[in-house]
Design a binder for these strands. Sequence first.
DNA 1: AGGCGTACCTGAGGGC
DNA 2: TGCCCTCAGGTACGCC
Length: 267
Amino acid sequence: MPELPEVEIVRRNLTAWVQGRTITNVASSGRHRGVAKASLTSIMGCRIEEVGRLGKYLTLRTGPHVLIIHLGMSGRLLSHDAAAYAAGPHDHVRISTDDGRLIAFQDHRRFGRVFLSPLDLSALPPLGPDPLCTPFTATRLVEILGRRRGVLKSILMNQAVVAGIGNIYACEILWASRLSPFRSVSSLRKGDYLRLVVSLTDVLTRAITAGGSTLDDYRDTDGAMGNFDINFAVYARSGAACPRCDSRIVAQILGGRVTYWCPNCQL
DNA sequence: AGGCGTACCTGAGGGC
DNA sequence: TGCCCTCAGGTACGCC
């Protein structure tokens, strides 16, 4: 699930569920190393003033603190009626609010994180600009990427360079901009940056409009995420025909991650 | 600074 | 049917 578009959809749900509510209780399973169990109790009694997002991080501002949530690989946030709620085995954090609702952070692979930060977000790791919070221009993208050296796809997925892009959308953005994932950043020219900046914004906003992508199609979660899939051009389509040039899509390892691309029309 | 390997986890799915 | 192996949307760490 969770790259920028999926996290943005969760942010919108979460805003509707908890913005303006007061936290009446916080409980954790104690079985998740990414959950800062001890400190979380200090947000009890606080009002959730604003739900934000920076890259793949959700930020819930509550008076003196910001509650940070990262969904990792398998994290979900689900809203329950507190009176009818029964904790599932993977519900690692439960946040109750003053309207009788309960938000469960469910994370079966336990790669997610839940912790507190000061208001300046200094507890977050270094993050580059979020392409939807600060809309990119080609000039801005040159500023951000131009000083970097290395392979284009790895740089795009580096959260300290650009925040929010993971493996799926890196593949899709590079296909849309007709750029090889293996290009060195220093080889990019003006026209390459122009296509890249358009594709970046376009792919991410289309994914949000489509409701995000889910590789597992769970059917009955109560509203955390739809089963909408954007139509991937290349992701998970090795051996299939490229929608643009009809050549075969190839899967190759790059930086330890499977990379899907069309060697014929991505140059 | 970047590349690479490894570690952290569970569950789904393929091969035999 | 069932066991074993591999793999997955992310990040962090240490070493070169």
